[in-house]
């Protein structure tokens, strides 16, 4: 058989400009977990996730909600004494789980990303009334009502568009997308 690579190496390969394995240099100080504003809602804290990646616990890492809850505030990255780009690591894990089609059920993250990207590719701009259904039904009844009242108020004040805004020269924009992602019948 061929010599294969470890899970941590696999993740490192997904990081931007990764030289070697930055994740392996983690000293488990816990600064990232201490800094993280959403650590309380995560299955495992960022420090634990890094330790699990280094141990090759692939299934548990992909099953966790940690990287989907990351708010991308970059505070962990700024404070990390070993200069590990933890936010980038979270993005890498998101990519990895979407490409492999393996993620926890009932998460908002994947469906929201999908709806958002689809919308941008089609119309060039974000349009909230269509974006909302991708996550709004995962709320409880009270939160749902709260969201609806908020939306109505925004609408009445003219802060929420009723019709989706279109950008100028949408064809050019689509051509740009086609250059980045080689799909879409472009010739």
């Amino acid at each position: 058989m061929t010599d294969t690579i470890s899970f941590s190496q696999e993740v490192s390969n997904l990081l931007y400009a990764a030289e070697g394995e930055p994740i392996k240099t983690c000293i488990q100080c816990g600064t990232c977990s201490g800094t993280c504003p959403v650590a309380g809602y995560m299955d495992y804290t960022p420090r634990q996730i890094i330790a699990m990646i280094n141990q090759g616990m692939k299934e548990q890492v992909l099953e966790s909600n940690t990287f989907w809850y990351c708010a991308s505030c970059y505070h962990c990255t700024v404070r990390c004494p070993q200069d590990i780009n933890i936010t980038e690591l979270m993005y890498a894990l998101k990519r990895y789980s979407i490409w492999k089609g393996q993620h926890k059920e009932g998460l908002i993250g994947p469906t929201f990303s999908e709806a958002f990207v689809k919308m941008i590719v089609r119309g060039g701009r974000s349009f909230e009334p269509i974006l909302a259904p991708s996550y709004i039904f995962s709320f409880g009844l009270r939160e749902l009502l709260q969201e609806v009242t908020n939306a109505t108020e925004l609408l009445l004040k003219g802060r929420l568009p009723i019709l989706p805004a279109r950008i100028k020269r949408l064809d050019n924009f689509k051509r740009i997308i086609g250059r980045i992602i080689p799909m879409g019948g472009l010739e």
Partner: peptide
């Protein structure tokens, strides 16, 4: 993203 469309 682009269901059913070819990769160029």
């Amino acid at each position: 993203l682009f269901p059913g469309e070819p990769i160029h």
